[in-house]
Design a binder for these strands. Structure first.
Lengths: 222, 222
DNA sequence: CTCAATCTGTTAGTCACTACCGATTTGGTA
DNA sequence: TACCAAATCGGTAGTGACTAACAGATTGAG
């Protein structure tokens, strides 16, 4: 009945999870997603296939797990309701990305960043992973709309929030692709800010880190 | 070697395709997507399971087939390159939707419209279908970017096009969901125009049919 | 120390999907 | 008209993701 009654138990659990995920991403990258069976991953991780399914509901979730969504929703509710919708959502995405990639020091990629890049590349190139990832963004969109706390009575405002959230997440996804293509050399938060500025205009999104969007030019219509 | 050497052959082929798809959508709607096997659909359509796979590569494609994408790309290349990106893409989406739903007469839904609604509802409510549909939009995004004919030399312009296309398609998807929720009572082209206006501002998209976006109020930022 | 909960493994089964093969039908041709 | 090439259709066997049910081992709490 108690949730926290095991520290060692939880440690081992997250440890095996991490191990399975690491081997999965490695094997998927090496031989391809479709050419790698769940049994292969299980053997590489030293567990039985059933254990894999106990930790990850589907094969795709071995790559796609990220609790990044909750972070975004929290920043949304913490933002000022006086700001325009796109700015509230956009800034939440930018700040969350900055937190996610961590304080990047210098040029060399940290291990977490490199792992994130590997996952991103798999998500982009593999149709099944890409589809499910986009669907996860769709679920995140619903969470954002809920977090915005729009009037349930006004259907027009709700539609407005849906459109703004979906458009912002689309820009986010494009920024992620761009960032992966650059091998993570640029700052992710800056790329996101640049994408948002390109879609909605520079005045709609504030700079994130200070040098953000300093190079973006022009509105959505060229 | 000749493509057109059979009118009767092609007729039967498209006929069985249509029959399989109709039974699939009906059964999926009645018992649910996951509770319906491909064999069930095959039996209902009076064919063997193998025949189903000959016409539709995957189970999901029985619901998701639409060549709607090619229509959009054609309108993109036909549009004036002088216009802003969002307007070019947005108008292409609006016009394609108007063509797709056909000239709606009065209140009663035509059979094609009702079938489209049934498919949309399945796409929205079933995770697997929703994911693949979003991925199809992602493929459409690539087609749009190609159709825009941006300078391959300028990576910044390409990024710009990617962002604009993805954001427009996100707005389209939100409009489709909204339209399905209204049971298709409103005009689809108008809903799309309204969504685009909500995302990018009213001045960015021109009215489609004449009364389009007459009710939309406010920019993206409330 | 004992008990209950959790983690793990094994087995058997369903279902989407593929590869391979043979049978039938159709359209054009000698 | 007879024949050939192509396309469609069906059956069989197999792979792989995923589930349900059952059994053994380990850990935390009283």
């Amino acid at each position: 009945m108690v949730d926290q009654h095991s520290t060692l138990r939880a440690q081992r659990r997250t440890e095996t999870q991490r191990k399975i995920q690491a081997h999965a991403v490695r094997l998927f990258t090496e031989r391809g997603y479709d050419n790698t069976t769940v049994t292969d991953v299980a053997e590489a991780a030293g567990v039985s296939p059933m254990t894999v399914y106990r930790h990850f509901p589907t094969k795709e979730d071995m790559v796609l797990v990220d609790q990044h969504g909750r972070l975004v929703a929290e920043r949304i509710v913490a933002s000022s309701a006086a700001q325009p919708l796109v700015r509230r959502i956009g800034n939440a995405l930018i700040d969350s990305a900055a937190t996610l990639t961590g304080a990047s020091q210098g040029d060399d990629l940290t291990a977490g960043k490199r792992f994130l890049l590997a996952r991103l590349r798999l998500m982009i190139s593999t149709p099944a992973l890409r589809a499910k990832h986009l669907d996860n963004h769709y679920a995140l969109q619903q969470a954002i709309v809920d977090a915005l706390g729009n009037d349930a009575a006004d259907p027009d405002a709700a539609f407005h929030a849906q459109v703004a959230a979906s458009a912002c997440l689309a820009a986010l996804h494009t920024a992620l692709v761009r960032w992966a293509e650059d091998d993570g050399r640029t700052e992710l938060a800056d790329v996101i800010a640049k994408a948002l500025a390109a879609a909605f205009g520079e005045d709609t999104v504030k700079p994130a880190t200070g040098i953000a969007s300093s190079e973006s030019r022009g509105r959505a219509g060229r």
